[in-house]
Amino acid sequence: MHDKRDIVPLTDKTKFPKRNSRNTLLLNLKNKDLELNFYSSLDSEVMTKILEKVLP
């Protein structure tokens, strides 16, 4: 016989603060066949690393 068990979510979304729903475009770059869009949610360190690799 099987025990009856409750289904419990793996994460409790109430614990996480709500983020700002506005994710604004900070920078749009177009270079030949490549187009990059950087939004406000992107970490500035990550954006810098990407730009260092892409821009000459």
Score class of each variant (00 low, 15 high):
Met1Leu: 12
Met1Ile: 10
His2Asn: 15
Arg5Pro: 02
Arg5Asn: 15
Asp6Pro: 10
Asp6Ile: 12
Val8Arg: 05
Val8Ser: 07
Pro9His: 01
Leu10Gly: 05
Thr11Asn: 08
Asp12Phe: 00
Asp12Met: 02
Lys13Val: 13
Lys13Asp: 14
Lys13Arg: 12
Thr14Asn: 08
Thr14Glu: 02
Lys15Gln: 15
Lys15Asp: 05
Phe16His: 10
Phe16Leu: 14
Phe16Met: 08
Phe16Ser: 12
Pro17Thr: 06
Ser21Gln: 13
Ser21Cys: 03
Arg22Ser: 14
Asn23Val: 09
Leu25Asp: 06
Leu25Thr: 06
Leu26Ala: 14
Leu26Glu: 14
Leu27Asn: 06
Asn28Gly: 06
Asn28Cys: 13
Asn28Met: 10
Asn28Val: 13
Asn28Asp: 15
Asn28Leu: 15
Leu29Asp: 09
Leu29Gln: 04
Lys30Arg: 15
Lys30Pro: 01
Lys30Val: 13
Lys30Gly: 11
Asn31Met: 14
Lys32Val: 02
Asp33Met: 04
Asp33Trp: 01
Leu34Tyr: 02
Glu35Gly: 03
Glu35Lys: 11
Glu35Cys: 06
Glu35Trp: 02
Leu36Thr: 01
Asn37Met: 11
Phe38Gln: 00
Phe38Ile: 04
Tyr39Met: 07
Ser41Gln: 05
Ser41Glu: 07
Ser41Leu: 07
Leu42Asp: 03
Leu42Thr: 03
Asp43Cys: 02
Asp43Ile: 00
Ser44Trp: 01
Ser44Leu: 09
Ser44Cys: 01
Glu45Trp: 00
Glu45Ile: 00
Val46Ile: 13
Met47Ala: 09
Met47Asp: 02
Met47Tyr: 06
Thr48Arg: 11
Thr48Leu: 05
Lys49Ser: 14
Lys49Asp: 05
Leu51Arg: 09
Leu51Tyr: 07
Glu52Gly: 03
Lys53Gln: 11
Lys53Met: 14
Val54Phe: 00
